[in-house]
């Protein structure tokens, strides 16, 4: 990729500042001495469970069911991850096998 140093510095700087904002915001809004409202506490309990599902969909946003290979590499890999994880309950094993299988599928089988 052909970008100038300034462009890259701007780009990575902007992403860094954006990330910092998302992390600092709650602590700015609720400094040490301020009460945390009930609704915010409720959101804090519930939202982590919704956000991960959204991130899975985000990762798969460019997958097409219509065009070849009809999302088969993704579907096969995710089914294998799910079965392996429910069976062995080993996070790293599931991630490792899932990613390697997907790489094999897209590099050798569904080219």
């Amino acid at each position: 990729m052909n970008y100038t140093l300034t462009q890259l510095f701007t780009f990575f700087g902007v992403v860094s500042v954006g990330t910092i904002l998302t992390r600092v915001l709650p602590f700015l809004v609720f400094p040490e001495n301020r009460q945390i409202p009930k609704y915010i506490k409720y959101l804090a309990d519930i939202l982590p469970f919704t956000i991960i599902g959204m991130l899975v969909v985000y990762c798969l946003k460019d997958v097409s069911f219509v065009k070849s290979p009809h999302s088969l590499p993704e579907v096969i890999s995710i089914v294998v991850i799910a079965v392996l994880h429910i069976w062995k309950k080993n996070t790293l094993l599931s991630i490792g096998v899932g990613a390697l299988l997907y790489m094999l599928l897209v590099q050798y089988i569904f080219i």
Partner: peptide
């Protein structure tokens, strides 16, 4: 850069919820 900034806020918005949980 502007698109990247908005994307960062969207992808990392979940941090807000982690922050709230750790207040």
């Amino acid at each position: 850069p502007i698109g990247a900034f908005l994307m960062t806020l969207a992808v990392n918005a979940r941090h807000i919820f982690y922050g709230i949980s750790m207040l």
